[in-house]
Computed example of a mutant assay.
Amino acid sequence: MTIYSIDLDPVSLKLDASVGHIADLTIRDGERLLSPLHRAPWVDDPAAEFPAGTAPNVKRLSGDFLCAPFGRNDIENAPSHGWSANSVWDHVETLRQDDRLTVAFRLQRRVMGATVEKRIMLVAGHPFVYQQHSFTGGAGAISAAHHVMVHMENGGDLTFSPKHGARTPSEALEMDPSRGRSILAYPAQSTDLTEFPLANGGFADLTRYPPGQNHEDFLTLVEAAEVKDARVKDVGVEDTRSEAPVHSLGWTVVSRKAEQDHVIVLKQPGVLPVTMLWMSNGGRNYAPWSGRHAGVLGIEDARASPLGHADSCGENEFTRSGVPTCFDLGSERKIIIRQVIGACAASPRAGKLIDVSEQDGMLIKRFDTGETRSLNYAADYLTG
C-alpha cells in the first residue's frame, strides 16, 4: 500500500495508490474540519476476513475511485469496476503553478488497451477537489463512472440537478434473504423522485436518506434532457445523440444532518449523463459487510449501464432513449472525464438547499429561505 498526501489549504487529501481510491479527504471551513467521504470499517481492521475472490476494490473500499468499466467486467478479464479500481497507480508528476497544485498518476495496467491517467488538482482557497481521468488509445468501448461514497451518521437530504426520472434494474442487489435485503421495487421507475415504488407497496422519497432500515438498494437517475438532432461535442469525444442535457452543470448535494454540512459532487452532464445511487444501509449480512456497512450513499456519476460492461456497449434501456452508456476508444482518440468533489459547513438558519449554479467564478448555493452562500470555484474546469 502506498499513500500519497496532497495538501493545499483548505483541502487535505490522501490517495491510496494501490487501488486508486481517495483514502481520506478533509476540508477546512473556518474553524471546522469536514470529512465528506466514507471509508469502509474493515479497511483499517487487521483482523478483517474476506471470502475467497473478494476484489481489491472491496477490501480497500474508500472515498472515491474510477470505475472502468462500471460494475460487471464481462468483456475484459478484470475484477468488478475494472483495473482502475483494483490495481496500482504510479505517480507521474507534481506541478505547482500560481495558486494551483496538480498531482498526476498513471494506471500500471491498460484498460481495453488504453492508457489511463488521473490528475488531481487543488486550488488555494477552494473547498473542492478537481479530478480528471483520461483514456488515451485503446480499442473497443468502455463504460466509466466515479464512485463517490458519503457516510451519514443520522441521514440527510439529497438535492439533484434536474432529472428525467429514476429507475431500478431488473433484479435487486440482494435476492437471497439469508444474505441480505433490498426494499425498492425491481424493476420500477418514476419521474417523481419523492415517490419511488417500494417492493411491499407504498413509496420512498429519494430526496431523503435513508428510505428505510437494513437494506441494500441501487437505482439510476437520468439527467433531464431535450430532443436534439444535431451533433453534440462532449469533452474529448463526439457523438450523435437524440437527446442532450438541458443544463450545463450536473450536481448532487448531500445535506448531512448530524454532521451539519453539505457534500457537493459536480459533473459534466453531457459526458456523464446518469447518476447511480447505491444505498448501502446495513442490508448485507455476509463478510466483510456483516451488517456494519450502514448509512452509506454511493453517488456514481457515469456513462454506463448498471448491468455491466457488455450491456453498456450494446443497445440497452438507456441507449434506446438516447442516453449514451459508453465511450468509443481509438488509437487517435483521447477521452477526458472531469468531476469535482467538495464540502462546506451548513447553517441551521439557511433552510433547505434547492439549487446550485455557477456565476462569476463562484458556486452559488440557494436555499428555500431565500438565503445564498457563495464558494470559491473554478467554473472553467468543467466547461473548458
Rank of each mutant, 00 (worst) to 15 (best):
I22N: 12
H133P: 03
R109Y: 06
E243R: 15
H247N: 05
G212W: 06
V235T: 09
F318I: 12
L13S: 11
L33N: 15
V123I: 09
D301K: 08
A124M: 03
V103S: 07
A40L: 01
G165P: 06
G202Q: 09
T319G: 07
H262K: 11
M175I: 15
T319Q: 06
K334H: 06
R349H: 14
N86R: 08
G63P: 05
A294M: 03
M175D: 08
G330L: 13
G295C: 03
Q213V: 02
A104F: 05
P197I: 00
P10D: 05
R179C: 08
L206M: 02
T54L: 06
G125C: 04
A104M: 09
S312A: 14
E93K: 12
L382M: 05
S312K: 07
T2I: 03
I341Q: 12
D355C: 05
Y4I: 10
G295S: 01
E238N: 04
R303F: 00
L122G: 05
G370C: 11
H126T: 01
W278Q: 06
M149D: 00
L61V: 09
D99I: 05
L329V: 09
R208D: 05
E300G: 07
R320M: 12
K257L: 12
V265A: 14
V58H: 10
E31L: 08
G165E: 09
N57S: 15
A258Y: 12
A68Y: 02
G71A: 14
N77S: 13
R39V: 13
D192R: 11
L13K: 10
P288M: 10
I299D: 00
M112K: 13
V296E: 01
V129A: 06
M1Y: 11
G180Q: 07
L219Q: 04
D205Q: 08
P273A: 10
W83R: 15
P46C: 02
A172N: 12
E195W: 03
Y130Q: 02
S248D: 12
G82E: 08
I336K: 11
H126G: 07
D239R: 10
N77T: 11
G308Q: 06
I364F: 03
T159D: 03
A199N: 13
Q189M: 09
Y186D: 00
G125R: 00
G165A: 01
K14T: 10
K163N: 09
R96G: 00
S255A: 14
K118Y: 07
R32E: 08
R167S: 15
G342P: 10
C313S: 11
A78T: 10
T372N: 08
G361S: 03
K334F: 02
I264Q: 05
I264V: 08
E171S: 14
K118A: 12
A350R: 06
V129Y: 00
A166G: 11
L198T: 02
I6H: 12
V88C: 12
T94E: 15
H164T: 11
E174W: 02
G236P: 13
A304P: 03
N281W: 01
D192S: 13
E76L: 13
Q268V: 02
T168H: 10
G322P: 02
L184Q: 00
